[in-house]
Design a protein around this nucleic acid. Structure first.
Length: 529
RNA sequence: GCCCCCAUAGCUCAACGGAUAGAGUAGUGGCCUUCUAAGCCAUUGAUGUAGGUUCGAUUCCUGCUGGGGGCACCA
């Protein structure tokens, strides 16, 4: 990747300068290569001169100039020029020749373009949604679902071996409550049309059994079809009930007891989670003899660890953040380092309808289901809408706006760029243009487009590292914008045969980048609009 | 009371501790006899408040204000 290459070049230049005793010895800082906001500040830039100025006791500007000369000795061709500016930034301007070379590479890579291998086939478990089978999936599940699915795509693109997993809480208090709701007795808590439907299908007088049968139907007939509609496929479904049936819960309990991590107090059995950084100890079995969720969660954790994952990632709603401490404590108690458990908290989704907030609650039977949403705005728009926001920011979903905007949504802006390219390529069907005359690509709009194309691998790496999925839709919009500007400035199908061939290569590379980016987001890349 | 998240343009959101804080949408004014106007160009408009850390803070730290979520032998 270019950014890392530049960092290495800078590092090497520093080493050379130290060896020649131009620079004193100092501890090497992490070389940070970024993209300046301002185009006149180059394509890449580094602040390394600031970082080392404290050791060298010299003006960063002066240091920058010295480094610049050292870099040019190592790498005279990659850059058109290198500038050292005002406070001490070193700005790199890529040479057209290099960019043209990269276009060729993109064409050769095709759908592999964007792939990197920082994962080195490490096994990662990504658990998301895992909504209780007590009702239809809601908008909040949509946020976690789409973000989880896309992060999985990104990790796969980064060379990780990813398992998408759904944990089914098909046992316990909420299932019994579902049973009561379907039976329609005074302990009913869930409401809604689907409960009325279930009343017709499931009969019985044991709330646990009724609840389990109802949960099975909800999972198979409501949740799974919605997931299919969402474009999400899971590799593994794990049932809580089965963890009990397979004695995994029993085993983990005796394991914890043997390790002396449990104790009895006031008739209940506790896990000493505070020994592993949790705020307080947690109950595993109540005084009534009932197992708590957390107990099977520990068994589930063990189940995952036994399957050889190096990293466990969870997508949870903000209402579960209080659960983080105990899960990490449990992982640690099982001998798994806490750094390998990553819990991503998605802030809650608020729904606005006709300017007013609609409080959503499965128990009150008030909500807009994901099904309805996707039917209304389409999968592409729904996905994009959820992916655009940072996980940490609250999401106000204005239903009227989403509906209204469906014709002017940013997702169309991106798809339109792709469709425009396809349209041009259809007209050039009989031409053999691949990788010809790329040296003719030097118009400012062509260069700008090429520079944007080549950063897709950087986007993938950054996102695989920090899980900030909104970077991807952002990139897609930027890339589309550079294409639309190119389209304005540069006629592809011109009378100049050589130039036409070069530009056809460029738009094919753009098509690849757009298609791969949309693919990562699970959004379609239409050939016509 | 304690803990977590958030506060940026009229609205919805971006911005590895960097340089002149970006988009979309809404407003205004332009551009289709030429590869798709679902597009392009111009223009109006913002970092809640008081400090601190440093060459540099929207970003990190502390207080305050205002929202959201969590603090069960619930899930």
């Amino acid at each position: 990747m270019l950014r890392e290459e530049i960092a290495k070049i800078v590092q090497k230049s520093l080493k050379n300068l130290q060896e020649k005793e131009v620079f004193l010895k100092f501890p090497f800082p992490e070389i940070d290569i970024g993209h300046p906001k301002e185009g006149t500040h180059g394509d890449y830039a580094t602040n390394v001169a600031f970082q080392i100025s404290r050791y060298l006791k010299k003006n960063p500007l002066e240091i920058g100039e010295t480094i610049k000369l050292a870099i040019l000795k190592i790498e005279p061709n990659l850059f058109e020029k290198i500038e050292v500016i005002k406070p001490g930034f070193i700005n790199f301007f890529l040479s057209p020749k290099y960019l043209q070379l990269r276009v060729k590479e993109i064409l050769n890579e095709g759908e592999r373009f964007g792939k990197v291998n920082i994962g080195k086939s490490e096994k990662v478990n990504l658990e998301f949604i895992s909504a209780n089978p007590t009702g239809p999936l809601t908008l909040g599940n949509g946020r976690g679902g789409f973000c989880g699915d896309v992060l999985a795509n990104i990790l796969e693109k980064s060379g990780f071996k990813v398992i998408r997993e759904y944990y089914i809480n098909d046992k316990g208090g909420q299932i019994r409550a579902l049973g009561h709701s379907v039976m329609g007795d005074e302990l009913a808590v869930y409401k809604g049309d689907y409960i009325e439907e279930l009343k017709k299908k499931v009969k019985g007088d044991n709330p646990d059994e009724v609840g389990q049968e109802a949960a099975r139907i909800i999972l198979e007939e409501m949740i799974k079809p919605t997931l299919k509609k969402m474009g999400i496929e899971y590799d593994v479904w794990t049932s809580e009930k089965k963890l009990y049936e397979d004695k995994e819960v029993e085993k983990i309990l005796s394991f914890l007891k043997k390790k002396k991590l449990t104790f009895e107090k006031e008739g209940a059995l506790w896990f000493a989670s505070s020994k592993f950084g949790d705020d307080k100890d947690r109950v595993l079995i109540t005084a009534d003899g009932e197992s708590v969720y957390f107990l099977s969660d520990i068994a589930y954790l063990k189940n995952k660890l036994d399957r050889g994952f190096n990293k466990l990632i969870f997508f949870w709603g903000a209402d579960h953040h209080g659960y983080i401490g105990r899960i990490i404590a449990a992982a640690e108690a099982l001998g798994f380092s806490r750094e390998k458990v990553k819990i991503i908290i998605m802030q809650l989704v608020k729904l606005f309808k006709e300017g007013k907030e609609v409080r959503m609650s499965k128990r009150a039977g008030v909500y807009v289901t994901l099904n309805e949403l996707i039917d209304e705005v389409g999968l592409d728009v729904a996905r994009f809408f959820f992916l655009e926001r940072a996980p940490g920011s609250h999401l106000n979903f204005d239903l009227d706006l989403a509906r209204e905007r469906s014709e002017k949504n940013p997702v169309y802006y991106i798809q339109y760029a792709h469709a425009r390219i396809c349209s041009i390529l259809r007209k050039a069907e009989n031409l053999e243009f691949r990788n010809k005359n790329l040296e003719l690509l030097k118009h400012p709009s062509e260069l700008a487009l090429m520079k944007e194309l080549i950063i897709l691998p950087e986007i993938v790496v950054d996102t695989a590292k920090d899980y900030q999925i909104q970077r991807l839709p952002q990139y897609a919009k930027d890339l589309a914008a550079f294409f639309h500007q190119f389209y304005r400035d540069c006629q592809v199908l011109t009378d100049n045969k050589e130039l036409k061939e070069a530009r056809l290569s460029l738009i094919t590379a753009t098509q690849i980048a757009l298609k791969n980016t949309l693919g990562l987001m699970g959004i379609s890349a239409p050939e016509k609009m």
